[in-house]
Simulated scan of single mutants.
Amino acid sequence: MAPPLSANAFLAALIAEGLTVVEVGDWRNHHRNHAGPWGPVHGVALHHTVTLGSARTVDICRTGYSGLPGPLCHGVITKDGRVHLVGYGRANHAGLGDPNVLRAVIAQTSLPTDNEASVDGNRHFYGFECENLGDGEDPWPDAQLEAIERAAAAVCRAHDWDERSVIGHLEWQPGKVDPRGFTMSSMRARIGGRLDSTPSSTAPALPAPRRPVVDLSQLVAAARTNPRTSGQPVTYAGVRTVEAALVDQGLLSRRYSDGHWGTTTIGAYSAWQRHLGYRGTDADGIPGKTSLAALGKRHGFDVKE
């Protein structure tokens, strides 16, 4: 029985394997541990996301959606080969699966066909979601496939597992097809070859990451519009970026989806302003340049005036 790695050990293992890692918000403390146990861990599960666009993919995997709250994995592997850490602990990724498959993973033997769904995979598997439409046509760039190989190998190396501890979602839960576009046998062969060699701490060269940009003027317009008095509220996509940061900061219980600055968000942002030392009308919940820049610096977005 293997206890999960600490969050710091998990991060260190990925970096030691030569991966470019992006830490998203307070990922170490973002989990579903209140919903059930996390561990013992026995393997790594790979998925595809059925999403388009890296920023959107990372956001969905971190926050989840109606009926399935995030995190939806531990790491999101985007097409550019980066691993974005969005949570650590129990995550909603594997669901119920086949007990015979779990026994084979633990024994590191060939997998049987999955035909049952009775064992809690969220408890026992690390999960990596991989950005892809999952239609069998969306390409898997070489940088992404290498990152999948390195990420799975990193976890296996840290636990002294071999490549048979890595499974696809389609091998765990009946009816699943992910990851689609490469075979798990070919990926396990790559992982096995990597585990037979000394880990490379040299990450492949990647372009600079693109950070979300929040337009302060549009955000203020949305924040100053009260839908109760003016009818249809002003909406702006940047509201969701800021709300996600307030969630990570522990000031907002969840991110809303309509893109307007409601009373709950006003209260949360006012708390952020007070945290920075503002009082009175300077802590009215309407974003200002300094407070917004401070939030963006901590939670990974830039501010445009």
Score class of each variant (00 low, 15 high):
I77D: 05
I266E: 08
H93E: 05
T183W: 07
H260A: 09
R103P: 02
H299T: 03
V44H: 07
A237M: 04
P207Q: 00
G136H: 13
C156P: 05
L85R: 14
G231H: 03
E137L: 13
D302P: 02
E171K: 09
V155G: 00
V41A: 02
E171D: 15
E171G: 11
K289H: 12
E171P: 07
T109M: 00
G175F: 14
T51W: 05
L251G: 13
A203S: 13
L111D: 03
V44N: 12
T225I: 13
D282T: 10
P287G: 10
E17T: 03
R180D: 14
N115G: 15
W272T: 05
F125M: 02
H48F: 14
Q218S: 14
C130A: 10
D258K: 10
P69D: 08
R180P: 06
A244S: 13
P207Y: 00
V21W: 04
S110E: 10
R150N: 04
A94R: 07
G175N: 13
F301D: 10
V247F: 13
I15H: 10
G127P: 07
K289D: 15
K297I: 04
D26W: 01
A205Y: 01
L5K: 04
L5A: 03
G25W: 06
L72M: 15
T290H: 10
R164S: 05
P71H: 12
V220A: 04
A45G: 02
G36L: 11
D162H: 00
P3N: 01
Y65D: 05
E17C: 07
G43N: 02
G67C: 03
G193S: 06
A13R: 09
G136P: 12
I148H: 02
I167A: 00
V22A: 02
D248N: 09
V214P: 08
S66I: 08
S201R: 13
N29D: 15
K297A: 15
T281L: 09
D142N: 02
P233A: 11
G67D: 06
Y88A: 05
G300N: 08
N100T: 02
E129I: 02
G288Q: 10
F125S: 04
H169N: 09
R56K: 12
T202K: 14
T229P: 03
V86E: 09
R254D: 02
H48Q: 10
P207S: 00
P71M: 09
T281Y: 04
Y88S: 06
Q249E: 15
I167H: 04
V58D: 08
A147E: 10
Q249L: 11
A203G: 09
T78M: 01
V21K: 10
A143I: 13
F301A: 11
W38S: 07
P99W: 01
N8D: 12
G168Q: 06
A12K: 11
G75V: 11
D135V: 07
S291N: 10
E137C: 02
T290G: 01
L195F: 07
H93P: 04
T241M: 06
N33D: 15
R32N: 15
R279E: 15
D80L: 00
G87V: 14
C156A: 11
T78C: 09
N33P: 11
G277C: 13
V58Q: 05
